[in-house]
């Protein structure tokens, strides 16, 4: 019982913390291009290929924020 309560409490705190962090820092670096917005070229002189995953921005919404935005759009549409 006590363990469950503690676990629930910890879970709640962690969730709230994650939610807060999604408000303060909604973006994270793109994992595909390492936040550079373009793929690293093998030859040095040549221009590198832009990253399509992050649309050349190098940033992507974090999972929580993306889910939140999606939910919000759904709510707006309804």
């Amino acid at each position: 019982m006590r363990g469950t309560l503690t676990a629930t409490g910890i879970l709640l705190v962690v969730l709230l913390g994650y939610a807060a962090s999604c408000i303060v820092r909604p973006f994270r670096d793109c994992w595909l291009c390492d936040g550079k917005g373009h793929h690293r070229s093998k030859r040095k002189r040549k221009l590198s290929r832009p990253c399509g995953w992050c649309d050349r921005t190098g940033k992507r919404l974090r999972f929580g924020r993306r889910a939140w935005n999606k939910a919000r759009e759904k709510y707006r549409a309804a």
């Binding site: 909604p26 973006f27 921005t57 190098g58």
Partner: peptide
């Protein structure tokens, strides 16, 4: 403004 940028998935503006 920052929240709006995040809502619109606009990392440039946000940054």
């Amino acid at each position: 403004l920052r929240q709006e940028a995040a809502n619109k998935n606009d990392p440039h503006t946000w940054q």
